[in-house]
Simulated assay, not measured.
Amino acid sequence: MQGLSKTRTELPEMLVLEILSKLPVKSLTRFRCVCKPWSSSFQTPHFIAKHQQNNLKNNNLNLLLKRCHGNTHDDIHYFSQLSTEKGQNFRVKHNIHLPFFKNCWYAPLVDGPCNGVLCLHDAGKAALWNPSTREFKILPQSTVQRPPAVDSTSFGCLGFGYDSQTDDYKVVRFVTNYFEENLDEGLMADWIEQVELYSLNSDSWKEIPVPGVHAYGSPLFNNYVNGFYYWQAVGDSDHLIVSFDMANEKFSTLPLPEFGGTLAQYYFQILDFNGLLGAIFYPREGTDKSFDLWVMNGSWTKQLSIESLPRVHRPLGFWKNDEMFLESSDDELVLFDPSTRELKNLDIHAYRETMQIIAYVESLVPINGRQEHEERIIRRPAGGESN
């Protein structure tokens, strides 16, 4: 048709970035090659925060399963990426092996996620990992001075979180220093506890004052909640919860819920439940388990009670619509729907008590590390492999 000219409409830059912020990290990684302005924009704090907010708003969760198929020091602990697509039944997409932790007993323990970043640690070794960007950062050795004449040092509880005031990611770690003193009656052991804090901004450790209680336990759930990290703890005469404020770097304590039992009868785990501090209790004995979830919102209130689930060993984590991942007494991953009380076997197995579920939102948060392939991290497609 004559008289018509071709026109080209360009979208405003802000609208383009708004659209791009809704895409998965894999797509954004490819689009960095389109032009330098896009690549630069993807690294700005505003775009990173917007991208994360969109994923949180749409509840776009990813799943990692940490597990092991054996029970000796040489057995390999690894991560499995599970499909979250509808109808995929949480099938294993690929398995991820981290050589940095291959000689560690628990290989490794996992804290987080915090804004899509995980902290992995075992026996004094620690690293940050963003599984979305595939960036991995090995933390430097601590330079905190140990007390004189220490015979040995062990690394205990660790916490990982975000300081929004300084835009910094921090790791807090409890260290126990042991001494042996020769007496006429024989050897006497003594110890001194220290707490050290790592800052990603400074890439260094420093010593901070210890709390007046003893923190213990390995997290099964995510213990980081809105700027605070929480541990199980014991004081002079009772059990309680100790928290660490990532911004002011101070410890504080709060009591356990009055859950109607004793810790000789019940296990309990701390967790983030929809942005609130939660505590889940379940009996130590028996194969028919019940679960009580308490939530702190000014005071402790019972949020959820699930009675008499057969052939269940322990809880592993919550999923969408308050569904729960559980470890069965047959060491299989199962999903429980509280609205129908249906237990769905997912045909994924591991050795007893090596499974840990990590649900995280994709994130572009940089951690100043190296790419997975540079650390020889291996991702193997799970096609044809046994779950």
Rank of each mutant, 00 (worst) to 15 (best):
D347W: 10
E332L: 09
H349E: 13
A359D: 00
S329Y: 01
K344R: 15
I357L: 04
L346C: 12
M324R: 11
D330A: 09
V365W: 01
M324W: 14
F336N: 08
N345Q: 14
H349T: 13
Q356L: 05
L326A: 07
I348V: 15
Y351R: 08
F318W: 03
A350T: 02
E327H: 07
D347G: 09
D347Q: 12
P366W: 03
F318V: 02
N321G: 08
G317K: 04
E327M: 06
E332V: 05
Q356F: 02
E327V: 07
M324D: 07
M324H: 12
D322K: 13
P315G: 13
L326P: 02
M355L: 03
T354W: 03
V361G: 01
P315Y: 15
Q356T: 04
D322Q: 12
E342T: 15
N321D: 15
Y360V: 01
R352E: 04
E353D: 15
T340Y: 11
V365I: 15
L326Y: 06
V334E: 08
S328L: 02
L326Q: 06
D330K: 06
L364F: 04
L343P: 09
P366C: 08
L364I: 09
S328A: 06
F336P: 02
P338D: 14
Y351G: 09
A350H: 00
V365C: 09
E362H: 04
K344I: 13
R314G: 05
Q356M: 05
R352T: 05
E332F: 05
W319H: 08
S363N: 03
Y360M: 00
S363L: 04
M324C: 14
P315R: 11
L316W: 10
N321Y: 14
S339C: 14
E332S: 11
M355W: 02
I348R: 03
I358C: 01
G317V: 07
T340A: 11
A359V: 00
F325V: 05
N321H: 15
E362M: 02
V334Y: 06
I358M: 02
N321V: 10
V365E: 07
R352S: 03
R314Y: 13
P315S: 14
E353C: 12
E353H: 14
R352V: 04
H349V: 12
Q356P: 05
I358D: 00
Y351I: 07
R314T: 10
I348E: 02
L343A: 12
E362Y: 03
L364M: 11
A350E: 00
D331F: 06
K320G: 02
S363V: 06
E323Y: 09
S363E: 05
L335R: 09
R352C: 02
Y351H: 12
R314A: 09
A359I: 00
L335G: 07
H349S: 11
V334F: 08
D322W: 10
L364R: 05
P366T: 10
L333V: 08
R341P: 08
R314Q: 11
L364E: 04
E342M: 15
I358A: 00
L335Q: 08
Y360W: 01
D322T: 13
R341E: 12
D347K: 12
